[in-house]
Amino acid sequence: MAHVWRMIAQRLAFGLVTLFVVSIIIFGATELLPGDFAQAVLGQAATPEAVATIRRELGLDRPWAVRYFDWLFGVLQGDFGTSLAQRGRPVTDMILSRLGNTFFLAIYAAAMAVPLALTLGVLVALWRNSLFDRIANSTALSAISFPEFFVAYILIFVLAQSGYFPSMARMPAGADLGEKLYRAFLPALTLTLVVTAHMMRMTRAAIINLLASPYIEMARLKGMRPSRVIIRHALPNAIAPIANVVAINLAYLITGVVVVEVVFVYPGLGQLMVDSVSRRDIPVVQAIALIFAAAYVLLNLTADVISTLSNPRLMHRT
């Protein structure tokens, strides 16, 4: 077991390094600003005195590295600084309530998408080149090509129009789980549809890839039923590619969430980010970008660990 823990620790350390560099990029990007932060906040017409005051207030007169580590240590303690647009309001305050909503939506969508996509992917691989396969494949290819907001508005047009589901996913404070699930159904369904298409195609490709291996041929020659060949022989070896597929698509959810939250006016991080971008509220955008990037890095890391664990050959590769 020792080497397993060592491998996981290694990957975690590597992920931390990545996150550290990502945080430097996210923070450092503001340095690319022509002029500076204070100028950008106040606009062209600002007097030099006003700019100087803001600069002192924001600590912009200190060197870059000092400000970066200040920010980083703040972040590590859960303090993302204060918003520029709503003077003095801590960013953590603005984010915290929405963070839960976004995670709720992402998990909701994942809980629908993952089983659906894997089942469909296995079925399509099983009946490949059949009519079902062709229809599923071309539908998936089209669904991938659709912008998320197109899918969302079609769902609103079909399902919300006729009054089955609300098109505005406002979350009342004291809603119980059932109520929340009902209200967030359309945004979750949109994400599910978009992600399922990707995931199904990748699962199909992963399984078909495996079906070419000799031991599958052997199992088939022994006269085993095709369903048993797939479930008992192909699937366990497909865990690594499938874990990858799932992680990649969950990471993809992160970007999908932004657009979908805006369409359905869902009170999540994505919507806050879009609002903050148009208000040029840099600290808020930085904080949310860091959270999304961390989730993204973590998901990729998990996929990596799972695929290594499922394949002993990868484990002993030095």
Partner: peptide, 13 residues
């Protein structure tokens, strides 16, 4: 390592 839409939003800000 940064999702592209998020990165784009950051740079556009």
């Amino acid at each position: 390592a940064i999702p592209s839409l998020i990165f784009a939003l950051l740079l556009l800000t």
